[in-house]
Design a protein around this nucleic acid. Structure first.
Length: 556
RNA sequence: UGGGCCGUCGCCAAGUGGUUAAGGCACGGGGUUUUGAUCUCCGCAUACCCAGGUUCGAAUCCUGGCGGCCCAGCCA
């Protein structure tokens, strides 16, 4: 996209990696991983992490693994795993190895046994409620559990029986023995294993004992030989625990966890729980609804992988909480599509124009370039005839200042065709404008009119040749920049986030459009043929990806 | 309030003791244009949260404030 020849911008993680490489810290290797929990679809925030992890690896001749962090089967599913693989691939990245935390359940268990033998973990019979009370508060130290000094033999025995399913859910947990007085609450004997009788999408009913994230993640990283474990800021306080587990276990690899700020985008939300709620409560049509900030939603809206990658590069990587304006994302797709999308003409809200001095049955096939700056994209023929359709808003009875479209008695250029003049306005009984009677200047095809200047250029389609289409005009899903700040984020939903236009007429060449193809509808914006609702090819359905930049409407 | 992290233009973001404090987005203005698009040119932080200090020299180092985010799941 922008400045492809430029060096990628410096950021603190690239610097750390470069330094490690210089010091030969991990034998000069870089192995990262992208570790989503398969409990939802990937969103633009994940794209930031994906681009970072795969990008850092690629820049340093390294590799990146995809790992499903599937330690809590309650919210996870195979559908989500498949969607995640599809989205990462679509973004243009190839993982070196595909893993699941669940692949390591056996090893994880054995490591836990080792921890117990070393006197570093114990089986606790305190209830969840009691554990909370014993944990202390932000300002007060916690109390040690009565079970904390259970003998190693007894811990071993109990832990083995936890595994074989001898105890009910929640009866015991395995805890790390660290420091109940630590100022870091994560170090106050954190839970390592809980008993939960849940069917796991991969291991079935093999286990009733599931490891916690903090225990699983560091070991999984170590097993895979990850060099740099990149995660978001909220895990900063977990790093001491990450390091504690690996140090106690003495694993052959000890990855370095580095935290960066997660993406916050205005006018949307990034919480998987809330995104899931939008889907299940039908506020949107699905995870791939074009208004969703998911990769699948953006893709269906017409965003390209290149534009999303460009966005991730532009926003940078820091440890600072920041809010990115929607305009940054929109600008990325505009830049891509301006460069690559062929142009076409579509009239969203048609107004009939009869050209009185044009021969009744004449049809001209006008040659029009597919891209004004790129002749290599070729051209197409557009039929012109006596009755054409223009955009309602391109005619004004009482024009605002600086209006340069069609007015009564005025002239305007029909893009790629002739200059026409409005002679008469026809209205119905209600006073609604239903038709314009115009004349055309036959001497203005491909040349400027003589003796006068015509400033305006408007798009059009030939009435009898045009194809009918449906256009879905999407707007931001939320009307507030930070829906999460609301008591109920649903209150911030934008009631006008989808407008369905059914009277749309498009030029006939669009009959060849394929699902996902993007076009610039001249003077309006970028649109793509919907990938879901065009299966049968019965009706053309276009999604608006983004408008064109518009310096006019802002001044009106 | 304990701990961790963060504070450079409206929004991002480079900068790591000596630079006129990069760049992008946004914004304002000129030019080109058969898209009010694109493209192009110009403008846009004497200033780096504040206050002291160290230094010939500080956004960068020190001290003290102020402001923001995260942590008390048997979620990740």
């Amino acid at each position: 996209m922008s400045n492809p020849e430029n060096q990628p911008a410096a950021n603190f993680i690239r610097q750390i990696v470069a330094q490690d490489l210089e010091n030969n810290k991990h034998n000069g290797e870089v192995l990262t991983r992208f570790p989503p929990e398969p409990n939802g679809y990937l969103h633009i925030g994940h794209a930031k992490s994906i681009c970072l992890n795969f990008g850092i690896a690629a820049e340093n001749h390294g590799a990146c693994n995809l790992r499903f962090d599937d330690t809590n089967p309650e919210k996870e599913s195979v559908e989500f795993m498949q969607a995640i693989e599809r989205d990462v691939s679509w973004l243009g990245f190839e993982w070196k190895e595909l893993h699941h935390s669940s692949d390591y359940f056996e090893q994880l268990y054995n490591y836990a046994v080792q921890l117990i033998k070393d006197g570093k973990a114990y089986v606790d019979s305190l209830s969840a409620e009691q554990i909370r009370q014993y944990r202390g508060t932000l300002t007060e130290p916690g109390k040690e559990s009565p079970d904390r000094n259970r003998s190693i033999e007894e811990n071993l025995d109990l832990f083995a029986r936890m595994k074989t399913g001898e105890f009910p859910d929640g009866h015991y947990i395995l805890r790390a023995k660290i420091d109940m007085a630590s100022s870091n609450i994560n170090m106050r004997d954190p839970a390592l294993y809980r008993i939960r009788r849940m069917h796991h999408q991969r291991t079935g009913d093999d286990w009733c004992l599931y490891p916690m994230y903090d225990y699983t993640h560091c070991i999984s990283d170590a097993i895979e030989g990850i060099t740099h474990s990149l995660c978001t800021l909220e895990f900063e306080d977990h790093r001491p625990l990450y390091d504690w587990v690996l140090n106690e276990l003495g694993t052959p690899h000890h990855p370095q966890q580095i935290e960066f700020a997660r993406l916050q985008l205005e006018y949307t939300i990034m919480s998987k729980r809330k995104l899931n709620q939008l889907v299940t409560e039908n506020h949107v049509t699905g995870w791939d609804d074009p208004r969703m900030p998911t990769i699948a939603g953006l893709r269906r809206a017409g965003y390209t992988a290149a534009a999303i990658r460009d966005f991730c590069e532009r926003i940078g990587i820091t440890k600072k909480d920041s809010w990115i304006e929607m305009g940054v994302l929109e600008n990325c797709i505009r830049e891509d599509l301006n460069e690559n999308a062929p142009r076409a003409m579509a009239v969203l809200e048609p107004l009939r124009v009869v050209i009185e001095n044009y021969p009744e049955d004449q049809v001209e096939q006008l040659e029009v370039a597919n891209h004004p700056q790129k002749p290599e994209l070729g051209s197409r023929k557009i039929p012109f005839s006596k009755v054409v359709l223009i955009e309602k808003e391109d005619f004004a009875e009482t024009p605002p200042p600086k209006f340069k479209r069609l007015i009564e008695g005025g002239e305007v250029r029909l893009r790629g065709a002739y200059v026409i003049k409005c002679e008469q306005v026809i209205k119905d009984n209600q006073g609604q404008i239903i038709e314009l009677r115009c004349t055309y200047d036959p001497d203005t095809l491909g040349k400027k009119p003589e003796g006068r200047k015509v400033k305006g250029v408007i798009h059009w389609v030939s009435d009898k040749h045009a194809l009918s289409a449906e256009v879905r005009v999407y707007d931001r899903l939320f009307k507030l920049p930070n829906p999460d700040a609301e008591e109920n984020f649903l209150d911030a939903l934008n009631p006008d986030s989808l407008q369905i236009l059914t009277e749309v007429k498009v030029e006939p060449s669009l009959s060849e459009a394929e699902p996902t193809n993007s076009y610039q509808f001249e003077r309006i914006g970028y649109f793509c043929l919907d990938s879901v609702d065009n299966k049968d090819n019965e009706k053309l359905v276009f999604n608006r990806t983004v408008t064109l930049r518009d310096t006019w409407s802002g001044k009106r």
